[in-house]
């Protein structure tokens, strides 16, 4: 259990998914314009990330490894992620129709979660690091919290930034990159916390 919590803390702060490992940047730059939609994306991705880590572990250890089909891992994981996103969308639509109608307002679109490299990246890192089932879940959950933290921080910084004067050539993507760089620098401060 303490092992799991160590993994959780390390993935949230020391090896933060976005600022240190560069996974999940597309939604960070695309969807964090509004504070509300940032929270929506964060919750949606957190759910899919944790679920995908668990299911991909089961598929890897029960189907791919015993049958020596590791080379199919990439295709299988992508199909898995696409179906997980679709299934969770269908479940929300069936059980919470009002919430489902609100999703586009929060900026949650299905493609945005699928094209999020974070989900695939976390599943692949789990395999590469040979995590156990519980470790995979903790890693997925920690990655999700780390992603949510950065996404919300970033959205808040952008809100502040709108009130300030930015040189013309830096407007738009360039200043976002530099903001992300400073955020990443701040996260570098956690290096060595795990030891």
């Amino acid at each position: 259990m303490s092992d799991g919590i160590a993994i959780l803390l390390t993935t949230v702060f020391v090896n933060n998914l976005v600022t240190i490992q560069f996974l999940g940047l597309c939604p960070l730059l695309g969807a964090s314009q509004k504070f509300d939609s940032a929270i929506g994306i964060a919750v949606g991705t957190a759910f899919v990330l944790t679920l995908a880590s668990a299911v991909s572990y089961i598929i890897e250890s029960c189907i791919l490894s015993p049958l020596d089909l590791q080379y199919l891992r990439l295709v299988i994981f992508i199909i898995l992620i696409v179906s997980l996103v679709r299934i969770s969308e269908i479940i929300i639509r069936a059980t919470q129709p009002r919430l489902h109608a609100l999703l586009p307002i929060f900026g949650i679109s299905v493609p945005l979660i699928i094209t999020n490299c974070a989900v695939l990246g976390v599943a692949l890192i789990n395999v590469r690091e040979a995590h156990s089932f519980l470790q995979s879940i903790f890693f997925g959950f920690g990655a999700a919290i780390g992603f949510a933290l950065v996404l919300i921080l970033f959205a808040a910084i952008q809100r502040q930034q709108r009130a300030s004067v930015v040189p013309k050539v830096f407007r738009g993507a360039a200043i976002n990159m530099i903001t992300a760089g400073l955020l990443s620098l701040a996260f570098m401060g956690f290096t060595g916390m795990g030891q």
Binding site: V169, F170, G181
Partner: peptide
């Protein structure tokens, strides 16, 4: 890692 973001930021600015 921060250097990656910063250098891409400056490259985009240069392109602009």
């Amino acid at each position: 890692p921060p250097g990656a973001f910063l250098s891409l930021g400056f490259l985009i600015a240069l392109k602009n």
